[in-house]
Design a binder for these strands. Sequence first.
DNA 1: AAGACGAAAGTGGTTGA
DNA 2: TCAACAACTTTCGTCTT
Length: 312
Amino acid sequence: MSEDRTLAQSLRVQRCPECGSSRVMKDSEYAEIVCMDCGFVIDAKLTDRGPEWRAFDQEQRDKRTRVGAPLTYTIHDKGLSTMIDWHDRDVYGRRIPADQKAQVYRLRKWQRRIRVSNATERNLAFALSEISKISNALNLPKNILETASVIYRKAVRERLIRGRSIQGVTAAALYMACRQCSVARTIDEIAEVSGVDKKEVGRSYRFLVKELDFFVPPLTPSQYITKFSNQLAMQGKADEIAHKTLTSARTLKLTSGRGPTGIAAAASYIASVLTGERKTQREIAEIAQVTEVTIRNRYKELVERLWFIISL
DNA sequence: AAGACGAAAGTGGTTGA
DNA sequence: TCAACAACTTTCGTCTT
């Protein structure tokens, strides 16, 4: 009974948080819940972590509990590592008799060999550590790391890594994960910390999107606005105004075809002026990675069309 | 003197023949 | 594959605060 309930709870996802579609499907082969309309990966680890037994008293609980680290996709064997340590001692700390030492040594050797057995495993182990490194450097949340790991595993399974640099693909997978989770990070930032050429990251990214048949929702300026106001240390009020400016701009069709960073930067600039905590164009340009000229152009367009809305 | 403004030329990526 | 194209950048001179 409780088994059914916990499973149902873990699968109770009715709507895609990204596009609101109710066509949500469980892809058990890849252990994902995926939105059928926009491709958003709603949940990537369909492991039922709840206990599949019931315990009526402490004794039963102790008896039935099994202990283990949670599964993670960020370690090449999903965290299911067993290591035989190098002490020649048994579980009670007693020395192992000489005639068994050779056997323990052999076991240890094979354990090591099995863990990272072939080239694919080594590749995976290296790539996943690389992903962790980059995501740590960028202070990315853990779910991004997991998503990126899943994407990379998928790429490996589809044999897409051949002929491509591991670093390039890891960076691309991470960028993809950011996009999937609506975390505004530019290719530049990822290229910077991963030490991979920006073009290479972009190429790999496009390749992955095409081959894995992913639909990646386009980055919206509003995601950048949140990021910018954080970096500019602006107050919530300014953030709010910037978002409002943006929605008006969208209804006036001023956003299509324009780079989202430029629009977000301009909206942030307008907000900074309106709230009185004025930031220079250069400051914002620096953070937004666009030029002052672009901010000025967007700003001009926005003000021309929006001033009457604001004055109303 | 710093910041804002805008013109003009240059750059990298996309599109359509 | 190539030219046309729009968005964006770089550069630089001028105006404003």
